[in-house]
């Protein structure tokens, strides 16, 4: 269902609020966007272009390109993009 942030003994930066296709989401500032989305229950980020099957972050290290989203209109890899207050995230990948 979602990634789970460990709370025991962990301190994180203050939450930043951003929008995902118009929906408000909060996450610690600087957390990788792929993590923040999955922690908010948004595991599926796009459909594959040929087979049309749902996809989400897979490698979490910048290689697989499965977590591609748009941020403020630009194509980015969510796992390499730190959360910033006010960012406008669009799901649907590069064909959006």
């Amino acid at each position: 269902m979602s990634l789970v942030r460990v709370s025991n003994g962990v301190t994180r930066p203050a939450a930043a609020t951003f929008a995902v296709d118009g929906m408000e989401v909060s996450a610690p500032a600087g957390e990788p966007l792929a993590t923040a989305l999955a922690a908010a229950g948004l595991l599926g980020l796009r459909d594959s272009p040929r087979g049309g099957t749902p996809r989400g972050a897979f490698c979490h290290m910048g290689l697989c390109q499965e977590c591609v989203v748009t941020v403020d209109g630009r194509i980015v890899q969510a796992c390499l993009t730190p959360v910033r207050a006010g960012m406008q995230v669009g799901l649907g990948g590069t064909l959006r």
């Binding site: 789970v4 460990v6 979490h60």
Partner: peptide, 16 residues
């Protein structure tokens, strides 16, 4: 490997 990144660098569990 992705799971280790989540655990070690982000203090995040891959799921419930």
């Amino acid at each position: 490997a992705g799971a280790t990144v989540l655990l070690k660098a982000q203090a995040v569990l891959p799921g419930r």
